[in-house]
Amino acid sequence: MITAGMDLGSKFIKIVIMNDGDVIARAKMLSGFEQEVTASEALSEALSKAGLQSGDIERLTATGVGRSIAPFAHDRLTEVGAAARGAIARLPETRTVIDVGAEEGRAILITPDGHVKDFAINEKCAAGSGTFTEAMARALELDIVEFGRLSLQSDKAVPMNAQCAVFAESEVVSLLHARTPKQDISRAVHDAIASRIVSMARRVSVEREVMIIGGMAYNVGFIASMKRALEMELIVPDDPDYVPAEGAAWAAHDKLVGMEKTELKER
């Protein structure tokens, strides 16, 4: 059966198309100002990659901050539910999911039988999200990937005083003026955001295996800071930002399976 998951994030829209639980196509596009239009475009792209028509999708589940405006969606699922379902599908042993995207961070504790036990969210403040790191990279005139990598070269922790992204930008610039090496500034930034994410995660308690997903999971500097702060190994999956969209596609799949079972019973 063909199902799809659509994750309308604040920065990117991700689409996953599945056939009986196997990912057959994916697409990612910048959300832009007209999310609904972008979502349709991204879906068309994924469909053409899969060699399918829109009518071939038996069920589509939408998630993400923009899920309410998702076109063609049969169901909508919270970001927490989608992240948990996707993480379990990737690795059934996952107990804690840390999801850090462009504008939000969340930590989810999952029971051994795969249900969401607790979750905590950092939202509506750039200090706890990927936007923070991006703003700092911009202030240093560095590419975000390069900025993350630089952090690995640092062996010195420089404290950062500012919490707010706006104030931190000025602080980063003055650190640069004071001739602080860029790699140390990069580490300071990644340590700062990691410490905020870890504080949030500790509110749900952190149990192994710990999987880190979302766009920030691509950032090697952030992952290193997270490992230091948590003092444990982390599972960083491939294509970490697609996990919630996969979770949504799985939710659509689960729903179809459930409906078939009901139908069988009724017969």
Binding site: D118, N161, Q163, S195, R196, S199, R202, R203, V204
Partner: peptide
């Protein structure tokens, strides 16, 4: 003072 939300987090588990 600028990080009490995070400093106090451990004393305030979700459940």
């Amino acid at each position: 003072r600028k990080q009490i939300k995070y400093m106090c987090a451990e004393c305030k588990p979700v459940s």
